Lab assay of single mutants.
Amino acid sequence: HMTFVALYDYVASGETDLSFKKGERLQIVNNTEGDWWLAHSLTTGRTGYIPSNYVAPSD
């Protein structure tokens, strides 16, 4: 899985979304859904959809 880092805080707007904090590391499970990607937080262990423009590839 690709690892990304959150650029901003995001508060989930629905049950399927994943809240995260700036700097949180996320594994992308599925990024074929356009602007919303299914991600797994390496910080909280939770999985949900995130806005793709809130994250950047982590080196």
Rank of each mutant, 00 (worst) to 15 (best):
G45P: 00
V11A: 10
I50K: 00
F20C: 03
T16G: 14
H1A: 14
G45C: 07
E24Q: 03
T47I: 10
N31A: 14
G23I: 00
L42P: 10
Y54D: 01
D35R: 09
D17K: 12
L18C: 03
T47Y: 11
N53E: 11
N53A: 15
S13C: 07
N30D: 15
V11M: 11
M2G: 12
S41Q: 06
I28N: 04
S13D: 09
N53K: 13
D35S: 13
D35W: 10
S52A: 12
T16L: 14
V55R: 02
G14D: 09
K22F: 05
G23H: 04
E24V: 01
D59H: 11
E33Q: 15
I50P: 00
L38T: 03
H40R: 15
I50R: 00
G34P: 13
L42A: 06
T32H: 10
F4R: 03
A12L: 03
K21N: 12
D17S: 09
A12H: 05
G48A: 04
G23N: 05
N30L: 10
N53P: 05
D59A: 10
W36P: 05
I28W: 02
T43Q: 08
D17V: 08
T16N: 14
P57C: 05
T47S: 10
V55C: 04
D59I: 12
A12P: 05
Q27H: 13
S13G: 09
G45M: 06
V11Y: 14
G48N: 02
T3W: 15
A6K: 00
D35P: 09
G34Q: 14
Y49K: 06
E33F: 10
Y10M: 03
A12Q: 06
R46F: 10
Y49A: 04
T44Q: 05
G48W: 01
S58D: 14
T32P: 10
G45S: 05
G23S: 03
T3A: 08
S52D: 02
I28S: 05
Y8E: 08
F4G: 03
M2Q: 09
Y49P: 01
A12W: 02
V55N: 03
L38M: 08
E24S: 01
S13K: 15
W36F: 10
Y8W: 15
V5L: 08
S13A: 15
R25F: 15
A56Q: 11
L7T: 05
Y10D: 00
A39E: 00
G48D: 01
T44H: 03
A56T: 15
T16S: 14
S19I: 04
Y49E: 04
I50T: 01
M2C: 07
Y54W: 07
D59N: 12
H40E: 09
D17Q: 15
Y10V: 02
S41R: 01
G48F: 04
D59Y: 08
V55H: 03
W37M: 06
E33L: 13
L26T: 00
H40Y: 13
T32Q: 13
S19K: 03
F20S: 00
D17H: 15
M2K: 13
L38F: 14
W37V: 09
W36C: 05
P51G: 02
N30Q: 13
P51R: 05
F20V: 08
Y49R: 08
D9L: 01
H1K: 06
E33C: 08
L7V: 07
K21H: 12
L7Q: 05
A12E: 04
Y8C: 07
N30G: 14
N31E: 09
A56P: 04
N30C: 08
S52Y: 08
Q27T: 10
S19Y: 04
T3N: 08
L42M: 10
T32G: 10
N53F: 09
E33Y: 12
F20G: 00
E33T: 15
L42C: 07
T44L: 03
G48M: 02
S19M: 06
Y54P: 02
S52T: 06
N31P: 11
N31F: 11
T3V: 15
R46S: 08
T32E: 14
D9Y: 03
V5C: 04
T44K: 02
S19G: 08
D35K: 11
T32L: 11
V55S: 03
Q27W: 15
H40C: 09
K22D: 01
L18D: 01
H1F: 15
P51W: 05
F20Y: 01
N53D: 10
G14S: 15
E15R: 07
D59W: 13
T44E: 03
S19V: 04
S13H: 13
V11L: 11
T32A: 14
T43C: 09
Y49H: 05
L18A: 05
W36M: 12
E24M: 01
N30T: 12
Y10Q: 01
L18G: 02
G23L: 02
D59L: 13
L38W: 11
L7A: 04
S19T: 09
N30I: 09
F4A: 07
P57I: 12
W36Y: 11
T43N: 12
T32W: 09
S19C: 04
K22T: 08
L38R: 04
Y49D: 02
K22W: 04
S52Q: 07
H1L: 15
T16P: 05
D59G: 13
I50M: 02
L26I: 08
A56S: 10
K21C: 09
W36D: 03
M2P: 12
D17C: 07
A56H: 08
L7E: 04
M2A: 10
F4I: 05
N31S: 13
T47R: 10
T44V: 02
D9P: 04
P51M: 06
K22G: 04
L38K: 05
V29M: 15
A12Y: 02
H1D: 12
M2S: 13
I28M: 06
N30H: 11
I28E: 01
Y54S: 13
A39V: 13
S58H: 15
D35I: 11
Y49L: 11
I28P: 10
L26A: 00
Y54I: 06
R46D: 09
Y49M: 12
W37A: 03
F4K: 02
G45D: 07
D17F: 15
I50S: 00
W37E: 01
F4V: 15
V55P: 02
I50C: 02
R46G: 10
W36V: 07
L38G: 01
S19W: 04
Y54M: 12
P57Q: 10
A39P: 00
Y8H: 10
G14E: 10
N53L: 10
